[in-house]
Structures are given as C-alpha cells and as structure tokens.
Nucleic acid binder design. Sequence first.
DNA 1: TTTTATTTTCTATAGTTGTAGAGAATAAGC
DNA 2: GCTTATTCTCTACAACTATAGAAAATAAAA
Lengths: 217, 217
Amino acid sequence: MAHKSLSENISRGVAAVPKIVDHDERRLELVDATWRIIARLGIEGATMREIALEAGFANGALKPYFPTKDTLLEFAFGHVFNRTNQRVAKVTEGKTGLPALRAFCLEVLPLDEERVNEARIVIPFWQKAINDPQKAEIHRQSMEEWLASIRQYLAEARKAGDVSAAVDDATLAGQLLNMLLGAQIGAALAAGPDADPGLADQLEGYLTLLARGEPQP
Amino acid sequence: MAHKSLSENISRGVAAVPKIVDHDERRLELVDATWRIIARLGIEGATMREIALEAGFANGALKPYFPTKDTLLEFAFGHVFNRTNQRVAKVTEGKTGLPALRAFCLEVLPLDEERVNEARIVIPFWQKAINDPQKAEIHRQSMEEWLASIRQYLAEARKAGDVSAAVDDATLAGQLLNMLLGAQIGAALAAGPDADPGLADQLEGYLTLLARGEPQP
DNA sequence: TTTTATTTTCTATAGTTGTAGAGAATAAGC
DNA sequence: GCTTATTCTCTACAACTATAGAAAATAAAA
C-alpha cells in the first residue's frame, strides 16, 4: 500500500502502526539524488541502481515511491521547473515592469553553479521530450506561463516608459525566451567555470535595445 | 584493411581487384540513415541494428566503416554542422552587412521540416556533449565561427548605417546566437507543424531593434 | 570458369538495464 | 519481550545493447 500522500497519513490519526517515512518527502529526496546524478554523470549514468546508491539505498528501494523509472524522471524534471518558478516568484515579488523583467531573466539565466547544473538537467529533459509527448507538454505549459509573464512585464514597462521599441510585445517575449533557452546550452556545454559569455551583459544590452534610447552616459 | 579514403583508392591505380564500394561515400550513406533514425525514433532508438536496417544492411555491416558506435555518432553530429555551414555559405555568398546577417539567421532558424529534423538531431548531440569533452569541442568550435561571422556582419552593417544600437557587437552577437539556439528547442519540441512561434518575425523584430530606428512605415 | 580480395551476413558473447518479488530488517504499540 | 505493519535488501530474470569474428556471398580479373 505505497504512495500514500502526506495528508493521507496525517488524517489517518492514531493508527495501529504509524508510518515511519513520509512518502512525499522521500520522493523529493529521491528527486534530489536524481538531479545530483544527472549533473555529475549525465542522463546516461542515471540508472536506477546509481540513483538508489546516491540516495543511500539499495537497488529496489525506489519502487514503492516511483513504480517506474519514467515516473521518477518525469517527476524530477517537473520539479526543476517548479523550483525555478519558486525562485522567480520570490525575486519578482512586488516588482513590475522592467525591474520585474530583469529579475525574472537574471533568475532564469545560468549565472551560478547551481543553475548551470539545472541546465545540465534540462537539456536531457528536452532530448527526452522530443519523443515523449507527455514530457513535451510539461515544457510547453511552462513556456506558455513564462511567455505570459514576460508579456505582462513588457506591457507594464511600456506604460512606465522603459520600453518603446517598435516591435510588438509578443515578438519581443519570444525573442527573450529563446535567448534564455539558448543560454542554457552554452552554459551546460562550457568546459569549466571559465569562458563566461557575458550573459548578464547580454541581458542588459537587450533591455537597452528595448528602451530604444540614446547611448547611455 | 578498412577505412581507406577515396583519394587513396583512386591513387592506387590498377589494382589486382579494385574496390567496389567507396568508403567515404558509404560513411555518408550511413550518416544519412543515422539522421533519419534519430529524427524518427529519437537518439534512444538509434541502435546499431536499427541504423543498419535503415541503411539496408545487416547488423554487423557498419563495423568496417565505423569501428564503434561513438565514432559513427560523432561523425554524424559533426556533419550536421557541416551541412548547415554549407547552406549558410551558399545563401550569404556575395552578401555583407545586414543582408548577410539576415540570410545567415534565416538559414540557421528551423523554418522548414528539414531544419526541424536537424534540431531534433542537434539536441541529442548537446545532451551527449554535456559529458563528452570531444563532442563539446565540436560545438564550441562551430559556435566560435558563427560568433565571428555575426560580429563581422554587424560591423559591416554599422558602417552601412543599418545598425546603430548602443550595445557592442560582441554582446549583440551573443544575444543573437542564443536566440538561434533557443529556437531549436522550441521547434524540436513543438507538437506538429502547428504552433509556429513566429521565428521569422522574431528575427525581423530583432533587426529592427538593432537599427534603433523609427517605427517602420 | 577459376581465383581472389572485398563485402556482408549471421551467430555468439559479455555486459548492462529496468523490473519483480521473496525475504530480512525495522520500529512502533501492546 | 512480542506482535505487526512497514520498509528495505537482495537475488533473479528477461530484454536489449555494442561488439567480435567466423563464414558466406559477391564481383572483378585472369
């Protein structure tokens, strides 16, 4: 009788023999181990045995929490988006317009090691999504939300006078999103922490283009 | 004694028993079959058996031409860049500045089915390159060349007055390259031929931003 | 036709993978 | 200490993989 959710457990009250592990939490632990393995060994090295080992368990221990490998991977991939969105929500909180847009992009760009690792996870995800409609749908939905956010920030920035480009917002949003996605590739394939392609400068430069303003001082 | 090159064969003159297949050409045939398989079944379905079958051969027939699967894949991946660069050279021939830049981008963007299939090949390549320095180097080198081309086109366009953005060319080139790479993701994961994100419009919009000009007529 | 170098097929092998499930280990409540 | 539901370990297995290499097939030259 596996796969009970946290809420189910709690609501059960005083049971004959209470559960010892919180299944929801355990699933997150396993996802974390999966991320570490993918970042370190690549998706090809992410076998059930290796993931279990990384999480501190034996081969078959994942079964009760994820009935199949695909279930585990899909959950793990989905949570990359979740985590990014949580971070984004935090840094954009209370902001609107250009500041919000800048914060959004700075949070999505792979500017530190943690987010470079996320790039090393999302690329295998894309590869799997190419031939897996269910995974492609996860991507599509997230990107749709991101596009909507960007468009809103752009509209606000226009009202504030920070954006006055002669290009419609939907097109700009598409450009920016593609830039953000492309940056993941460069970061994931970069040899070491060297060779920073100046992503922050690219972002500032792009925002400058949107302002269609005069050369800055 | 496999892996003789075409030139070697020809220069051998009248031999006891002339070779029947051109090894170089056969390798290209196999690469083509590999592309088709990856585009149709994904990189996971690209087993030696499946590739051999697609090329019209039995299981072990690839051996004399590619001693190992990795050799085959690396050759196949490298040729995607080759082919793209050949197409790019053709469409930019005689052009400079903004027209050259536009032609370059239009050729790299996944605007038709053939290039969407190439996107479906390059994403698995990126995934493999994450944990394979040799493949990452193929990517790095191609991107360096592309960046150099873009920078040159930008410089020419500036001279011609088509670009007057208050952002340096290296940064602009980085932006544009990332946009082009990001576009591959969207195209490869798009469900059908529907849902075109308006890549051509995005490109034109970006070039408009570079002009920093007034709204077009 | 016979010879001969080349090309291809076919079978075999060693290794790895996801998954299943019996049994041992565990820890809470009596 | 004993019971019991849960959790984990361990072994097993069937499927699939890349690769090796012997043998058959092929086609040009003599």
